[in-house]
């Protein structure tokens, strides 16, 4: 794995995609090391907010040296980021986390990539990197289906909305069932209830599933032990039933974790 760094990234541009959802494009040397499912820590300039904000990588382009971060404004730090514009600079820490194992989807397998809410963005880079039969199933609150056009470039895309304004009314599991697709492998990122449902579906059907978890984080590099999740077996590093989401994750095989 490449060495982690704290580096200054240049802002190439930013636009708003939906209510509270922003699309930030950065120029950074770190892009060359990034893969789907990994994340970066983004630092607010306001020194009353000290910790880096973990934000998933929506797209990465090693050749251009660019990262695309699509995030939701959730507090003071992300509110500050939403004001970044072309020509600004922002400090980032990365590349963090293990990422989605694309090699797990072998040729001939049918992969389903599921994203819900602010768990949707990292699914885009995954859709780009996966080289097999793939369907994206993404869930939104309402008709503000951000990144939809991007997904449609790379995979068959199925939409679920809570209010039923687009696609299947309900969540991503409802949409998956309605589509009739029988996946051989699942990848998912989204809110905990969604991941729980996907995990039990995968375990019941015996499908290999990789889920991306999140938790309040401090260091982002595996030192502080703030962001742990429960593991089924004793973890190799902690020697207790805890794995570090920032370093051992954020992506875990569904059977490995208790959620």
């Amino acid at each position: 794995m490449a060495q982690k760094k704290k580096a200054l990234a240049g802002v190439l541009g930013q636009r708003q995609l939906a209510d509270g959802i922003f699309d930030l494009r950065l120029k950074t040397e770190l892009a060359g090391e990034a893969h789907c499912g990994q994340f970066v820590g983004v630092y607010p300039k306001d020194k009353s907010t000290l910790l880096p904000r973990p934000i998933s990588i929506c797209e990465t382009d090693a050749k251009e040296g660019t990262l695309r971060l699509v995030y939701r404004v959730a507090g003071k730090g992300t509110a500050e980021f939403s004001g970044l514009k072309e020509g600004d600079a922002v400090e980032i820490l990365g590349i963090l986390g293990n990422g989605f194992p694309v090699e797990a989807a072998r040729p001939g397998m049918r992969a389903v990539l599921m994203g819900g809410g602010i768990g949707v963005p990292p699914i885009l880079q995954l859709a780009k990197e996966l080289d097999c039969d793939k369907t994206v199933v993404v869930g939104y609150r309402d008709s503000q289906c951000f990144l939809r056009e991007d997904f449609e470039k790379y995979a068959k895309t199925v939409i679920a909305t809570e209010d039923g304004s687009v696609g299947t009314k309900g969540n991503v599991m409802d949409a998956l069932k309605a589509s009739g697709i029988e996946p051989d492998i699942l990848y998912a990122c989204g809110p905990m209830p969604m991941l729980k449902a996907i995990r039990s579906y995968a375990l019941e059907k015996g499908i290999l599933a990789y889920i991306s978890l999140e938790e309040r984080m401090a260091c982002g590099v595996g030192a502080c032990l703030g962001c742990v999740c429960k593991t089924t077996a004793v973890d190799h590093h902690s020697h207790v039933h805890n794995a570090r989401i920032c370093t051992d994750g954020p992506v875990f095989e569904a059977r490995e974790v208790e959620i």
């Binding site: 009353s48 938790e215 309040r216 703030g226 962001c227 020697h239 207790v240």
Partner: peptide, 27 residues
């Protein structure tokens, strides 16, 4: 080995942070 506390274990506060890791350690 100690498993430590349940999550959330960390929170940011003005100019600092709170932690309640609970001394998770491998023994």
């Amino acid at each position: 080995a100690w498993p430590g506390n349940p999550t959330p274990r960390v929170a940011e506060v003005y100019g600092g942070m709170l932690n309640a890791i609970g001394l998770q350690n491998p023994g």
